[in-house]
Design a protein around this nucleic acid. Structure first.
Length: 903
RNA sequence: GGGCGCUUAGCUCAGCUGGUUAGAGCACCGGUUUUACACACCGGGGGUCGGGGGUUCGAAUCCCUCAGCGCCCACCA
């Protein structure tokens, strides 16, 4: 042994160097030509501009645990990393940079702007992949992919064209979610509803002249009117009708008549449609087909006209009357309300809470907008995806997310995939300027397929980011080419992701896998919860409540981070981490790493430099404690493996922890010390060494997936058996060893533990000096117990300061006794150990004091007026107190009796 | 408005298909420099398992109900 190791583990000294070595050795690389059974995870690609946060920390640690475990099991384990171009998000970032130069993307022009984004991505992108290395992610970096890579772009194009050919991609005029700040369409999933305190304005629309409807109210000037309610009064500028329910008798006579739309000078019809709920508000709905999806549908059915009154920026356009033109939508809202008020047409205003959709990227209020977009019709894709789940081809962990998945798929709506952005996959569609033909092609066309003209113009839009992400499980493998990776590593095995992108990503991947490959892309889906702060809030930059994983690594080590997130919550469960007290949050993980380090140091000191002694060479000399720890190891291996198989990573981590700390370190190491010193002879020492090496080895292996660094550091320092692997990362996962499992040894050591525990408790209760040695009598010990106690005399001495053990009775002696759960009785003579007179006096005083309390409380409770008048809980409190005093007194009396001896 | 989930020690959480005395870590109290580790060791206190009702020989666990919290979905203007 070269230099003595420091008593505290220093992660900084080891982690990064170890990681580099692993990577250089190629331990993370997967081989498509291997004969081994594959195990594949593709990373949920983080945004290319992202910085590592705790969500990534949790998510990627879980993937790494699974990958490392399977790799140790001998699988050809591939963890494929990569990043997402993140259309809107990345474009927004670069637009902000350009804005600092006082320019917009339009000033630069499309080509130059996209060039700027690429520049930015090349300079700063992919930082997160470096950060993932810091927390130990054992991904195959030689296979790193980016959603805009040429090969992945080919997959995107193939899929778009194929779906178009099948009639599943189509272009249509629809009301879509429009972000007036990003100036693009959004999918339904990208429009996030937020509870908002708004208002419900009740507006009066006068009946056009010439009609008289009985029962309809009148304005002061005598005109009759209808009341409609709206949360967005500004849209009335684009109203083209009012709808009522066909069965609503109040308005039956109105259907077909016209109303004067205030402020506009236009006349609009009253129509009937089932959509209207006669119970809500006045039972009449204003129709703004260009700015509301439902109104649009009603208009389609009833033939009401469509009028767009807003610009892409959501300002009022030239279709609206003069005073409102150019106003922002919220400004126009105030102006419209004011005008109605002035005209005496504002009936009332109510408070109204409702869900207002916001852009998921910039949080601007989404404006529904009529425009021409590309869609994927989803029903045909959803059905097989639903069936695959019902058939059990894909399973969710936890299972309950299957129902969420089912519900979404059953109610699926078409997916708007075109985006009015510049950063992304350009839509492979061209329009012929000569004959108007639409050309959708895998290769860029040079002339019109119909008229042969060359005036082709490509569709200016790009595809939704998720339109490339949903192909990720196979596009990363080289599809549509028939590659070796495709054959070996597809389908994938497990997908690990936050449940927040179940719809965005996971469901769509399942659909794409079934549609384009005829099978599910992965068998198991592990959904992580969200990482929150200790108040249950989402971690966010604006709240300043985030935890930087790299700071955690710096202060506590990557292993501590990993242990904390893996042991801290199960699948689907949110994890609460206190950002204000990192010591409390990550200290336990760091302490555990330190424990591993020190157990390793201890072993190194005691095992020496010689090659490891194989267990079968010492089998004749194994003692119960040896057989016990081996038995426990075998069972722990089984439990950890079983937990991992069932995706119960939390249990796997804590079981490894309990075995290592609670059994190996706390008990075996202590019990075995005298033997390692050589107190019990050479054969016993060699048996102890062989067992210790074996137990430590097994413990390190089962903990390695969770805490790869410290386990590797320790394992590599330990003496090796002949021909053993060069690194723990590629060492085999241990098997349970039924031949080691030994019920008798477990019983014996449990008894020994109970004895030691009982002696320690007695020592504490009687305040025996820590250094004082006590005799121990165990009269009724079985032969089994006798044997183990006898063999462990020295350990017993050290562990609870017992100096002699006798199996004879304790006639008339004064002392403390205890009965173990097994029924074994044990007795510790106290004469000469403690000052008996003083102890007896102390006990008598205590009893006397308690008697006083008891008498007082009894008196109180026997006082009828107290019991009658005092509140119930006060009386109960007194009763509880009395019972507690009684218990305490009983215990003290027992002790006193013991000390008074047989006399 | 639908659907899902949660409520167990001061805090963060285990407790799987009902069965010995409900567990862990942290925090708390007391003790220990016993040469692997004070990021440790030893001992200890602390829970009417959200409330109520039911099924059962037996319920933290199953059923009903009430309350509180959270998430997802949804076109009620």
């Amino acid at each position: 042994m070269a230099e003595p190791l420091p008593p505290q583990y220093n992660p900084q000294e080891n982690e990064d160097a170890l990681y580099r070595w692993w990577e250089e050795q190629g331990f993370f690389r997967a081989d498509a030509a291997s004969e081994r059974e594959p195990y594949v995870i593709v990373i949920p690609p983080p945004n290319v501009t992202a910085m590592l946060h705790m969500g990534h920390g949790l998510n990627n640690t879980i993937q790494d645990v699974l990958i490392r475990w399977r790799r140790m099991q001998g699988r050809e384990a591939l963890w494929l990393p990569g990043t997402d171009h993140a259309g809107i998000a990345t474009q927004n970032v670069v637009e902000r940079l350009v804005a600092k130069e006082g320019k917009t993307r339009y000033d630069l022009g499309r080509e130059a702007f996209v060039g700027r984004v690429w520049e930015f991505v090349h300079e700063t992108g992919g930082v997160i992949l470096q950060q993932l290395r810091a927390i130990g992610a054992s991904a195959d970096w030689t296979r790193t992919r980016f959603t805009l890579d040429e090969s992945l772009s080919r997959a995107v194009r193939e899929v778009f064209v194929t779906l178009y050919e099948k009639g599943r991609v189509y272009r249509g005029h629809r009301i879509i979610n429009w972000c007036p700040r990003c100036l693009t369409a959004l999918s339904d999933e990208e429009a996030e509803p937020a509870e908002t305190q708004g208002k419900l304005w009740h507006l009066r629309y006068p009946l056009a002249e010439g009609a008289e409807i009985p029962g309809l109210p009148r304005l002061p000037d005598g005109r009759q009117y209808m009341t409609i309610a709206t949360t967005r009064p500004e849209t009335m500028l684009g109203d083209t009708g009012v709808a009522v329910h066909p069965g609503d008798e109040r308005y039956a006579a109105l259907v077909g008549r016209e109303l004067d739309l205030p402020l506009t000078g236009r006349r609009i019809p009253v129509v009937a449609d089932e959509y209207v709920d006669p119970e809500f508000g006045s039972g009449a709905v204003k129709l703004t087909p260009a700015h509301d999806p439902n109104d649009f549908e009603v208009a389609q059915r009833t033939g009401v006209a469509t009028l767009n009154v807003m610009t892409p920026e959501a300002a009022i356009n030239g279709e609206a009357p003069e005073p409102f033109r150019g106003m922002d939508r919220f400004e126009a809202r105030r102006a419209v309300v004011t005008s109605f008020e002035e005209l005496g047409l504002l009936e009332k205003v109510e408070e109204h809470t409702h869900a207002v959709p916001h852009c998921y990227r910039c949080d601007t209020v989404v404006e529904p907008r009529l425009s021409e977009q590309w869609f994927v019709s989803m029903k045909p894709l959803a059905e097989p995806a639903l069936q695959a789940w019902r058939d059990g081809q894909v399973r969710f962990h936890p299972e309950r997310f299957g129902r969420t998945y089912e519900h979404w798929l059953e109610n699926i709506r078409d997916w708007c995939i075109s985006r009015q952005l510049w950063w992304g996959h350009r839509i492979p569609v061209w329009y012929c300027g000569d004959c108007g033909e639409t050309i959708v092609a895998r290769e860029d066309p040079t002339s019109c397929t119909k008229c042969g003209g060359s005036a082709l113009e490509q569709d200016p839009d790009v595809l939704d980011t998720w339109f490339s992400s949903w192909l990720w499980p196979f596009s990363t493998m080289g599809w549509p080419e028939d590659t070796a990776d495709m054959r070996k590593f597809y389908p994938n095995s497990t997908l690990v992701s936050g449940h927040d992108i179940l719809f965005f990503w996971i469901s769509r991947m399942i659909m794409a896998g079934l549609e384009f490959r005829g099978e599910v892309p992965f068998r198991d889906v592990y959904l992580t919860g969200m990482v929150r702060d200790h108040l249950g809030r989402k971690m966010s930059k604006s709240l300043g409540n985030g935890i930087d994983p790299l700071v955690v690594k710096q202060r506590f080590g990557a292993d501590a981070l990993r242990y904390t997130v893996v042991s801290g919550s199960g699948a689907g469960t949110d994890q609460l981490l206190n950002y204000e007290n990192l010591d409390e949050t990550f200290g336990p993980g760091r302490n555990f790493a330190n424990k591993l380090w020190n157990a390793g140091r201890f072993a190194l000191m005691n095992l020496g430099d010689d090659p490891r002694v194989p267990l079968d060479e010492v089998s004749a000399d194994l003692e119960p404690m040896d057989r016990w720890i081996l038995s426990r190891l075998s069972k722990s291996v089984r439990e950890v493996t079983d937990s991992l198989e069932r995706f119960r990573l939390q249990d796997a981590a804590t079981r490894g922890y309990e075995f290592f700390w609670g059994e190996l370190a706390d008990w075996y190491l202590e019990l075995v010390k005298p033997r390692l010193r050589g107190d019990m002879g050479d054969a016993s020492r060699r048996a102890a060494q062989a067992t210790l090496a074996q137990a430590l080895d097994g413990a390190l292996r089962i903990l390695h997936p969770v805490m790869p660094f410290i386990t590797e550091v320790v394992w590599q320092k330990l003496p090796k058996a002949e021909g053993e692997a060069p690194a723990l990362i590629v060492a085999p996962w241990p098997q349970p060893r039924p031949e080691w499992e030994d019920a008798a040894a477990e019983r014996a050591i449990e008894e020994l533990q109970a004895v030691i525990g009982a002696v320690r408790t007695i020592r504490g209760e009687y305040g025996i000096q820590p250094a004082a040695r006590v005799p121990l009598r165990i009269p009724g010990a079985s032969d089994e117990v006798k044997a183990v106690l006898d063999a462990s005399r020295r350990a017993l001495r050290d562990m609870c300061r017992v100096d002699e053990v006798e199996f004879a009775g304790a006639d008339g002696e004064v002392g403390a006794s205890a009965v173990l759960r097994s029924g074994t009785e044990l007795f510790i003579p106290l004469a000469g150990v403690i000052d008996l007179d003083k102890e007896r006096a102390r006990l008598r005083d205590e009893i006397q004091r308690l008697d006083g309390h008891i008498a007082g409380t009894e008196k109180k409770l026997s006082n009828e007026s107290f019991v009658a008048r005092a509140p119930e809980n006060v009386v109960q409190y007194e009763r509880d107190k009395l019972a507690s005093f009684g218990d305490q007194r009983g215990k003290l009396a027992e002790k006193l009796q013991a000390l008074e001896g047989a006399a």
